[in-house]
C-alpha cells in the first residue's frame, strides 16, 4: 500500500507532499488543477514497480519508467514533464509499505532518469487506472492505434486497461471479492462478456446487446466487475479512479462507493479524483460509519495543495464552496 507521495516540479504540481495515505484517498479540485495528472503520476510509478523484474522482462527500471512516462503523458520527450520555468529538476518520491522509491530528471531529459532509491520489493499485484471515459466501446480502436500503429492518442492508462480486460488465465475464484462483485452485478443487472466474433457485449438474462448501445454508466461498472472477475485485481492492487461519478446517477454513485469501501476492506487501495459533491459527501459518510481515515488533498487556484481527512469532517473545498455560492445567489434572488 502506498503510504506517502512527494512530488516537485511534476507538470502542474510544483510541490506536493501527501503523507499517511489511507486505503481510500481522494483528490478534489477545479478543472486544470492537476487532479488527473497526479493520479497518472502515481500510476506511472506504481506500474513501473509492478513491471520491473516481472517474469522474463529484462528491462531496467529506468527503461520501464521512461517508457511509461512517455506513453502515459504522451510527451515527445519526458523532460517536457518538468514544470515550465522551474529552476530545479522534477523530483518524485513514493513510499510503499515504508519502502522507498525516488527518481528525478531535468527538463532536457529524453530518456535518462536518475533513480536515486528503489527499495520496493517487486510487486506481484496489478494496479489499474480507470479513466473517466469507458473503454469497452473503443477497445479495438485503442489496441489498433497503440499496439499496431504505435501512435499517440490513447495513453497508457487506456491501453493497459484494455489489456487488463482481456481474457486471463483463471486463477480460481477469489472469494474475497464475492460480495462486492455481487453488488456490482446487482447495479448492472447483467454482465459484459468478450465474444471472439462480436466483441464486447452486455448480457442481461438470456439477451445479448452490442456494447455500443449499452449505457455509459453500465460499461463503467462492468469494467470494474470484469477486472475483479478475471483475476487481474487482487488484494494488493491499487485502483486509480478518475471521476468515478462520470455518467452515473447519484444513487449509482452512492452504491459504487459502498463497493469501493468493501474492496478497500479486502485490501485494494483507491485513489479517486472527483468533482462531485455526491462523491465527497458519500465518502465522508463512509469515513464516519466505518471510522475510516480517508485522506483528501485539494488543489487550490494558487497551486497549493490543502490536506484534510474525511474522518474529521467535510473539507473546505471548491466543490462545496461553489455550491454555497450558488445557494447564496438563490437566497439573494428569492429575498431581494
Amino acid at each position: 500500500m502506498l503510504d506517502r507521495i512527494e512530488l516537485m516540479n511534476f507538470g502542474p504540481i510544483t510541490e506536493m507532499d501527501w503523507k499517511n495515505l489511507g486505503q481510500i484517498n481522494l483528490v478534489i479540485g477545479a478543472n486544470d488543477t492537476g487532479k488527473t495528472f497526479l493520479l497518472k503520476a502515481l500510476y506511472t510509478g506504481i506500474k513501473t514497480l509492478e513491471e520491473y523484474k516481472r517474469g522474463n522482462d529484462q528491462r531496467t527500471a529506468v527503461e520501464i519508467l521512461a517508457e511509461k512516462l512517455r506513453w502515459t503523458f504522451q510527451a515527445e520527450k519526458i523532460g517536457d514533464l518538468v514544470t515550465k520555468g522551474a529552476d530545479a529538476p522534477l523530483s518524485y518520491f513514493l513510499s510503499s509499505d515504508h519502502h522507498k522509491f525516488r527518481y528525478s530528471f531535468g527538463k532536457d531529459t529524453t530518456k535518462q532518469i536518475v533513480i536515486q532509491e528503489n527499495h520496493i520489493i517487486p510487486r506481484k499485484s496489478n494496479s489499474v487506472f480507470l479513466p473517466a471515459k469507458e473503454v469497452l466501446s473503443l477497445y479495438n480502436i485503442i489496441q489498433k492505434t497503440r499496439d499496431r500503429d504505435r501512435v499517440f492518442g490513447f495513453d497508457d492508462t487506456y491501453l493497459d486497461l484494455c489489456r487488463a480486460l482481456g481474457p486471463l488465465p483463471k486463477g480460481g475464484k477469489n472469494s474475497l471479492f464475492a460480495e462486492p462483485r455481487q453488488n456490482l452485478e446487482e447495479i448492472l443487472g447483467g454482465k459484459v462478456e468478450l465474444d471472439e466474433k462480436s466483441g464486447w457485449q452486455f448480457k442481461k438474462e438470456n439477451q445479448k446487446f452490442p456494447i455500443g448501445v449499452t449505457a455509459e454508466g453500465i460499461k463503467k461498472i462492468a469494467i470494474l466487475d470484469t477486472l475483479l472477475g478475471n483475476g487481474y485485481l487482487g488484494p494488493d492492487s491499487i485502483i486509480f479512479f478518475d471521476e468515478p461519478e462520470a455518467a452515473l446517477h447519484p444513487s449509482a454513485i452512492s452504491r459504487l462507493l459502498d463497493i469501493v469501501a468493501l474492496l478497500a476492506e479486502g485490501g485494494i487501495q483507491f485513489f479517486l479524483a472527483s468533482h462531485s459533491y455526491f462523491v465527497v459527501k458519500k465518502l465522508f459518510l463512509i469515513a464516519q460509519e466505518k471510522s475510516l481515515s480517508i485522506p483528501v488533498i485539494s488543489a487550490g487556484d494558487d497551486g497549493c495543495w490543502q490536506h484534510a481527512n474525511l474522518k474529521k469532517g467535510m473539507p473546505d473545498n471548491p466543490i462545496i464552496n461553489e455550491s454555497i455560492e450558488l445557494y447564496k445567489k438563490e437566497v439573494k434572488l428569492a429575498l431581494q
Binding site: 467535510m314 462545496i320 455550491s323 454555497i324 445557494y327 447564496k328
Partner: peptide, 9 residues
C-alpha cells in the same frame, strides 16, 4: 454553517 444550510433546505 453556510454549507449545512443547503442539505437542510
Amino acid at each position: 454553517k453556510d454549507a449545512w444550510c443547503i442539505p437542510l433546505r
